[in-house]
Amino acid sequence: MGTYKLILNGKTLKGETTTEAVDAATAEKVFKQYANDNGVDGEWTYDDATKTFTVTE
């Protein structure tokens, strides 16, 4: 398990959240659902060194 971070750079929603997941693929699924639930759809990037996903609208 590891802690993964999501940085939201949406047009109307900005912020950060974290999740505990077994791997990056699992964290990505959780974060994409979170972003979708909050109406954020954009370009995704992932930094393996910091376990950080970023979505920018």
Rank of each mutant, 00 (worst) to 15 (best):
T12H: 14
T45D: 09
G10M: 12
V30D: 05
D41R: 15
G42F: 03
V22S: 12
I7N: 04
K11S: 12
A25C: 09
K11H: 11
E16T: 15
Y46F: 07
G10A: 10
Y4E: 01
Y46K: 01
F31W: 02
Y4S: 01
K5M: 07
E57H: 06
K32C: 05
K29P: 03
Y46E: 00
G10W: 05
T56I: 07
W44P: 00
T54W: 08
N9Q: 10
K5H: 13
A35S: 05
E43V: 14
K32Y: 06
T12D: 11
V40M: 08
L6Y: 02
E20C: 10
T18W: 15
Y46R: 02
G42E: 01
G42M: 03
Y46H: 01
V55H: 01
K11M: 13
T12Y: 14
G15L: 15
D23A: 03
V40Y: 07
M1Y: 13
Y4L: 01
V22A: 14
T45C: 08
T18P: 02
T50N: 09
V22R: 10
A49H: 11
T18G: 04
T3H: 09
I7M: 06
V40K: 02
W44H: 00
T56R: 06
K11R: 13
T26K: 06
T54P: 00
T50H: 05
A24I: 08
E20F: 13
N38S: 08
Q33M: 10
E28A: 12
V40P: 02
V55L: 10
T45Q: 10
G39H: 08
T54Q: 07
E28H: 12
Y46N: 00
E20Q: 14
K11I: 14
Y46G: 00
V22N: 11
Y4A: 01
D48A: 14
K32W: 09
T45R: 07
G39Q: 08
K14S: 12
G42S: 02
V40W: 13
K14D: 05
K11A: 11
T3P: 05
G2L: 14
N9K: 08
D37C: 09
T26L: 05
D47P: 00
Q33H: 06
A35H: 01
L6M: 04
T50K: 06
Y34G: 01
E16M: 12
N9Y: 15
T3G: 05
E57P: 07
T12L: 13
V30Y: 15
E28D: 04
T56C: 06
E28T: 04
T17S: 08
V55D: 01
Q33T: 08
K14Q: 13
M1S: 10
T12F: 15
D41W: 14
Q33W: 05
D23E: 04
T52L: 04
L8D: 01
V40G: 02
K29M: 12
E16Q: 11
G10P: 03
K32A: 05
G15P: 04
G42R: 01
A49R: 10
L8I: 15
E43H: 12
D48C: 07
F31Y: 02
T45I: 10
L13K: 14
A21Y: 03
Y34T: 03
M1D: 06
T26Q: 13
E43C: 12
M1W: 14
E28K: 11
I7E: 04
V22G: 12
E43N: 11
K29Q: 10
T45F: 12
N36D: 11
G2C: 13
V22T: 11
N36V: 13
A21T: 05
I7Q: 05
T12K: 13
D37V: 10
L8H: 04
G42A: 02
F31I: 01
T17M: 15
Q33N: 08
N9C: 12
K5C: 06
A35Y: 03
M1A: 10
K29E: 10
E57S: 08
I7A: 03
E28Q: 11
T3S: 07
D47G: 02
T18Q: 12
T12S: 12
L13A: 08
T50E: 06
E16S: 10
A24W: 12
N38W: 14
E28M: 15
A24G: 04
Y46T: 01
A21Q: 07
V55I: 09
E43T: 14
N9E: 08
F31N: 00
D47H: 06
K14A: 07
A27K: 00
G2T: 15
G10N: 04
K29N: 07
T19N: 04
N38A: 13
W44S: 01
N9F: 12
V55S: 02
N36W: 15
D48G: 10
G39C: 07
K5D: 02
T18C: 08
L8G: 02
T52C: 06
A24N: 05
A49I: 11
K32I: 08
V40A: 05
G39M: 07
E57W: 12
G15M: 15
W44T: 01
L8T: 05
T19Y: 12
T54N: 05
T50D: 05
T52D: 01
M1P: 11
L13P: 04
G42N: 02
E20W: 13
A21P: 01
A49S: 12
V55M: 05
W44Q: 01
F53C: 00
G2H: 15
Q33L: 08
T17P: 03
T56H: 07
F31K: 00
G39V: 04
V55Q: 01
T12C: 13
G10S: 09
T45N: 07
D23T: 05
T26E: 14
G2I: 15
G10I: 08
D48T: 11
A24K: 14
T52S: 04
M1R: 07
K5L: 08
G39S: 07
W44D: 00
Y34I: 08
I7R: 05
E43Q: 13
T54C: 06
T54G: 03
T26G: 10
N36E: 14
T17Q: 09
F31E: 00
D23S: 06
A49L: 13
D41L: 14
K14P: 06
F53S: 00
L8A: 04
T56P: 01
G10H: 06
D37M: 13
G2K: 14
G15D: 09
G2M: 15
I7Y: 06
K29V: 11
E28Y: 15
K32N: 04
D47Q: 05
I7H: 05
T3Y: 10
T56V: 07
T19C: 11
F53N: 00
F31C: 02
T19L: 09
K29S: 10
F31Q: 00
A27E: 00
Q33C: 05
E28S: 07
G10F: 12
A27D: 00
T19V: 15
G42Y: 04
K5E: 03
K11V: 12
K29D: 06
F53P: 00
D37T: 08
V55A: 03
T3Q: 10
E43A: 11
V55T: 03
T52H: 02
T17D: 03
T19E: 04
E20K: 10
G39R: 06
A24S: 08
T56K: 06
D37P: 02
A25W: 10
K51G: 06
T50V: 05
Y46D: 00
A35Q: 02
D23Y: 03
G10Q: 04
T56L: 07
D47S: 06
I7D: 03
W44G: 00
T18R: 08
A21D: 03
A27W: 00
Y34F: 11
A35N: 02
E28L: 15
E20N: 11
T50I: 06
G10D: 03
W44I: 03
T3F: 09
T3D: 06
V22L: 09
A27L: 00
A24D: 05
A21E: 04
T19Q: 05
A24T: 07
T50L: 08
W44V: 02
G15K: 13
E20S: 11
K51Q: 11
F31P: 00
T56A: 06
F53T: 00
T17R: 11
A21G: 04
A35W: 03
G2E: 15
V40E: 03
E57R: 04
V30C: 07
T3M: 12
T12E: 09
G10R: 04
E28P: 00
A25V: 10
L6P: 01
W44F: 04
D48N: 10
